[in-house]
Amino acid sequence: MLILYIITALLTGLSLLASPRKTGRALRIALRRFLKIAPAFLGMLMLVAVALYLFPDHVLGQMLARENKWIAAGSAIGVGSVSIMPGFIAFPLCGILLNQGALYMVLSAFSTTLMMVGVVTFPLERMYLGTRLALCRNGVSFIIAIVVAIATGLFFGELP
């Protein structure tokens, strides 16, 4: 995170030295684009807030550590698609679940859909990509996540 601030400050400084006029334009562009997309971000935040309430960590844990591996994998894909979660929460959670006996296949399904499929980010994605392309990208990512999960299961010998 700190690196991001340093890089931004450094580049802005360099830009200022090179041309204050252009830098001013860059900042205006930044502000304009930010304001334009801010409502969609708000929409996403509201959805995230509700989704996180509905699926707190311990509920997630129960769903992913089911005995039946198909149900566990299915719910992993479902929950992973709906919710988004920062990596620093998701992976420690996955680590704990692994120790509790969750399958690699299930964790793979969960983390891949978490990162690549976003129902709650959809309002935002729609603004940038358009509805059709956003739907298409999420659909394909969903299928990729299933394939990755199956491959992981085969590799770790969890699938027959």
């Binding site: 890089i7 580049l11 830009s15 252009k22 860059a26 930044a30 502000l31 930010f34």
Partner: peptide, 15 residues
Amino acid sequence: VLPCIFILIGLFDVW
């Protein structure tokens, strides 16, 4: 995070 990202995008746009 976002202010940095949008400033970087603005700089990218201009330069």
